[in-house]
Amino acid sequence: MTAPTIEQAYATCEDITRTEARNFYWGIRLLTRQRRSALCAVYALARRVDDIGDGDLPVEEKAARLETVRKELAALDRSTDPVMVAVADAARRYPVPLEAFEELLDGVWMDIEGRRYGTFDELTEYCRCVAGSIGRLCLGVFGHRPHPRAAHYADALGIALQQTNILRDIREDLLNGRIYLPEEDLDAFGVDLRIDHGALADPDGGLANLIRHSAARAREWYADGLRLGPLLDRRSGACCLAMAGIYRQLLERIAEQPSAVYDKRLSLSGREKLGVAVRALGGRAA
């Protein structure tokens, strides 16, 4: 296979991002051209890994495909795959921590093997693998003023976003045989996760209380992670605020009305996402 040009490789990644990144693209489009291309490359590879985990293939085939990605990362400069070519170029231009992709692969394997989480600390480790890794990859593209906790803030922001995803997707995940809410929390709030007539059952309000409790905990991770903003330049900071703002607004909507996620997948409208992006350009979080 003939290797694509760098321009062709980035164009492939931007097409993937534009099509698939329903929330992230609102932030990515605020970056300068070069940084936007690099972040699209990061997203395209992360999406490929996620799709392996979420696909309908047998476990053995999923494991083989994850291993293929690991091998391609180890031989990145020799790849002719457009996404890998773009990632390799992005890593030459910016200090992208490629080892974070290894963490993402580990996290997706947790999904494939159907891991359950007994405690919130165990869930946090999963979130760190699948989302904190993305935060640190983004930070490599953004660049930042020197600060000893910059990577920690990026990690925390990714974990906050993943906690929001988990609350939004409780029903969808349960239908797919996955439960992310920690067993200790389910027990504490007396929740037996099940679907009743197409919706999450919550006969005594315990699930609603658990969701509000989890949202309050996620807010603490957002507060920590958003300390990253002042360390970034204006355009990168706007991108960060837009990404976080969309998910944080979604979190508040879920916390206000937990039952909104009982029978559907909640999302913000395009107009609402645009409003978040505009405020982010002005340096304001949603």
Rank of each mutant, 00 (worst) to 15 (best):
G140C: 13
R235K: 06
S133T: 13
A260Q: 11
A44E: 09
I6A: 10
R279A: 14
A21R: 05
G270K: 09
R47G: 04
E183V: 08
G158Y: 00
L266F: 04
D202Q: 06
T119A: 08
R265M: 06
L281E: 08
I211K: 04
P82T: 12
D192S: 11
H152P: 01
G27Q: 09
A156S: 10
F142E: 06
A154M: 11
R18T: 12
L123W: 01
A208R: 07
S214C: 04
A75G: 09
T32V: 13
V49K: 01
R18Q: 10
N176A: 15
L31I: 14
L76R: 02
C127N: 05
G107T: 13
G114Q: 03
V141M: 09
R279G: 02
L200W: 02
I166R: 01
P95C: 12
L175Q: 13
M1P: 07
D202E: 06
W109Y: 11
S259Q: 09
M243L: 09
G135C: 10
A46N: 12
G225Q: 10
E172K: 09
E60I: 15
L232T: 09
G177A: 11
M110E: 15
R70G: 01
G275R: 06
T5I: 14
A74Y: 02
A218F: 03
C127Q: 02
L181K: 03
R136Y: 03
A215L: 04
D196W: 00
E172W: 02
A188Y: 03
L181P: 02
D77I: 07
A260P: 00
V59R: 07
L250I: 15
V59Q: 10
R271D: 01
G229K: 07
H147P: 08
H213S: 12
A100N: 05
G225E: 10
N23M: 06
F142Q: 06
G114L: 08
T17E: 10
L98H: 00
T119P: 05
A3N: 02
R248Q: 15
I179G: 01
K62Y: 02
L251P: 01
G275P: 00
R279Q: 09
T32R: 14
C240S: 07
A244L: 05
G27T: 12
A201P: 03
F101G: 06
C40S: 11
P97V: 14
Y262W: 13
G55R: 02
A280V: 12
T5M: 07
G245V: 14
C127M: 12
F142S: 05
V87F: 01
F120T: 12
E183T: 12
A223L: 11
D185H: 04
R93P: 00
R47S: 04
I170W: 00
R115E: 07
G283N: 04
A131M: 03
R65Q: 14
L207H: 04
I179K: 02
G206D: 05
I28F: 10
E122W: 02
L251F: 00
E102C: 07
